[in-house]
Amino acid sequence: MKAIRLLLICLAGLLFSCEPEEIQPGDGSTGIETSKGVIEFDFELPRTGVPERAIRRVQLNVAQSIDSLNRKDYYSAANVSDYRQKYTFHLPPGRYFYQAGVTCTCQGDSCLYGGFPGGQFSIWYTGGYVDVELGKIVSQKIRFQ
């Protein structure tokens, strides 16, 4: 009888000790603010004859019109890095124009002869537009041509 009691106490202890961490029921949200959508840019570096380490991302800006983009009146800007390829912007729905730029850090004429359209520290731009929809994530690949 005593052994059965001891066994029951041990089992009760085991039950409590194995209680899993409480898991909150998901609401299906994607972490997007209710009034916004998301653009996810895939900022791949262009392939040139210049050594890969010499091509550096220098800017990725979004504006609400081409005119604003040209006047550098940006709506938002990413902190670009050589160690990160994906950049996200949480924006209200609408059409956004983007501009991405890379530079070449090789000295002398190496940038030009390597196929980069400019000399050292010149910026090679590309751009386009993206339509942001409420609560959705839009992916956009950045291409240099």
């Binding site: 220098v58 938002s76 902190n79 050589d82 520290f121």
Partner: peptide, 23 residues
């Protein structure tokens, strides 16, 4: 230090929602 790099044309943005990552 990896980021920020000493390239002045790559600018530092402290806008809310776009934190600067020091690497």
């Amino acid at each position: 230090i990896v980021d920020p790099v000493p390239i002045s044309i790559r600018r530092i943005n402290f806008e809310p929602g776009q934190p600067f990552t020091i690497r």
